[in-house]
Structures are given as structure tokens and as C-alpha cells.
């Protein structure tokens, strides 16, 4: 079985689908460059990303899919899961096979996987919309570090642009090392060079700005006061607010 390797981009993945139809190699396994391990008994085909081919595949898929299913496909791609790529490939082939309304056959394993994975990715996106905490820096910009489970930053852009149209902000994904920067006019992708040894673990006190500190403390005051001790339910608390988010949550930082 041949291994098809693409360059981690969505365009690359769509090109892969194009090349498969072109070369007709039978069944294959799909891998991104990041996850690729050479195997002794399999041939490897490296896909060369080609935006023209990608566009043709995208157009073909969009013609056969509802808006929701197309988004589900993109979300599954953003999950960056190795098995996700396999299922996406299977999903695309199933959709191209000509079955009407293929996307709603939840009895098909690829359709069901894409649907369920997309839900997980959307949930992570929603978690980010809820749990991102901005800190205002000295120059007035609002900064939020994140470490999402899936690569959801592209999905967040519109939400935060619409919401914070009158403030400059940066959301930076520390796992994938890139961020979004809004400068009051447009959005840009950015990469920051953190020096070795920069402490990313604790939310750095970026500014000594009095107001920033004050609002953080007021928010903690509010968070404590709105709790009803007689109803204490830590299990539910942790279920709703999983520990992996605590690192960047202002209200979960211990007073110093």
C-alpha cells in the first residue's frame, strides 16, 4: 500500500485527493509531513501542493456538499489527527462516488467520523471563545495566549474581529507557534520569536499597568462572590471547566 504524504496544509491535502484520482493507485494510507514515518515495505508518494488542483477538488466537493458538511470537512482537517486524514480521504472518495446526499449517511464510518470529529473541533473552538482571557499590555494592546487541543485559530478569527472591532488584539497559539493580530483594520497571521528561556508557563505579567492588575483582581473578587458555597460541586466545576484551561484563566490564578 502506497503512503501519500502532503505538506500539512489544507491545499496540500486537496491536491492529494486530485493526485489519487489521477494516478489511481488503489488503496493508500494518508499522512502529513509532520506525522510521516518511512516504512520498509511501502512506497511513498510525496504530493506537490498545487493550488489549481486544490481549487478543482474544493469546487467539486462544495458542489456535492452542504455548507455545514463542507465546514465539517475543514474542521476535521484542523483536528490534525492522523486517523482524521484517513477518514477525510475516505469521506471525499465516498462523496465523489456519486451517492446523493452522501453526507447524511451516518451509517457510513467516514461520514460519521467526520461529523463527530467536526463536533469536537467546534467544541474546542467554542471553548476558546469562552476561555480566552485578554490582558492589556502597556501599549494598549490586548494579548491572549492559548494552547488549544486542535488547530482552531483559523476558526476564531471572525468571532474576535466582530467582537473587538475597536481594540487591537493578539491571540497566540503557543503549541503551533503562530498567532492572529488585529490592528483595528485587518487581521494578520503572525509568528513571534520568543527567546529561549522565555517563561510561557505562567501567564506572564506583561505590564505593570495598574489598571490591568486592578481589573484582574476585581474579576477574581467577582468570581469568588458569585459562587454559592452551599451548592459546592467541584466535580461539576471541573467537568465544565476542564483543568487544561486553568493555566490561562485569570480567575483560576492563585493570589500572590
Amino acid at each position: 500500500m502506497e503512503i501519500y504524504v502532503f505538506d500539512d496544509t489544507f491545499e496540500g491535502f486537496l491536491t492529494l485527493i486530485f493526485d489519487w484520482y489521477n494516478r489511481k493507485p488503489g488503496s493508500i494510507t494518508v499522512s502529513s509531513t509532520k506525522q510521516y514515518h518511512p516504512q520498509a515495505f511501502s512506497q511513498t508518494y510525496f504530493v506537490v501542493t498545487d493550488s489549481e488542483k486544490a481549487t478543482r477538488v474544493a469546487t467539486g466537493l462544495r458542489k456535492r456538499l452542504s455548507k455545514e458538511a463542507w465546514r465539517a470537512l475543514y474542521c476535521t482537517f484542523l483536528s490534525e489527527r492522523p486517523e482524521g486524514y484517513e477518514h477525510l480521504f475516505g469521506f471525499a472518495v465516498y462523496v465523489f462516488s456519486g451517492i446523493v446526499q452522501a453526507e447524511s449517511n451516518y451509517g457510513n464510518e467516514h461520514v460519521l467520523f467526520v461529523h463527530q470529529m467536526a463536533r469536537k473541533v467546534e467544541r474546542e473552538k467554542h471553548h476558546m471563545e469562552a476561555f480566552i482571557r485578554f490582558q492589556q499590555t502597556q501599549d494598549g494592546m490586548y494579548y491572549a495566549p492559548i494552547e488549544p487541543k486542535y488547530n482552531v485559530l483559523p476558526l476564531l478569527a471572525g468571532h474576535f474581529r466582530d467582537r473587538y472591532a475597536d481594540q487591537a488584539w493578539v491571540i497566540y497559539d503557543h503549541v503551533r507557534r503562530y498567532g492572529l493580530y488585529y490592528d483595528l483594520h485587518s487581521l494578520q497571521l503572525i509568528t513571534l520569536d520568543f527567546q529561549q528561556g522565555t517563561n510561557l508557563e505562567t501567564p506572564a505579567r506583561i505590564s505593570e499597568d495598574y489598571h490591568e492588575e486592578m481589573y484582574q483582581l476585581l474579576w477574581k473578587d467577582y468570581f469568588r462572590s458569585t459562587n454559592i458555597p452551599a451548592r459546592r460541586n467541584l466535580k461539576l466545576h471541573v467537568r465544565n471547566l476542564p483543568r487544561r484551561f486553568w493555566k490561562y484563566l485569570t480567575e483560576k490564578q492563585v493570589f500572590d
Binding site: 476561555f131 454559592i228 467541584l234 466535580k235 466545576h237 465544565n240
Partner: peptide, 9 residues
């Protein structure tokens, strides 16, 4: 959007 959850859940 629920932005946080208190210790009572």
C-alpha cells in the same frame, strides 16, 4: 457563551 464556571458548577 459561558465564560467561566464557579465552584458550585
Amino acid at each position: 457563551i459561558c465564560h467561566s464556571f464557579t465552584e458550585d458548577g
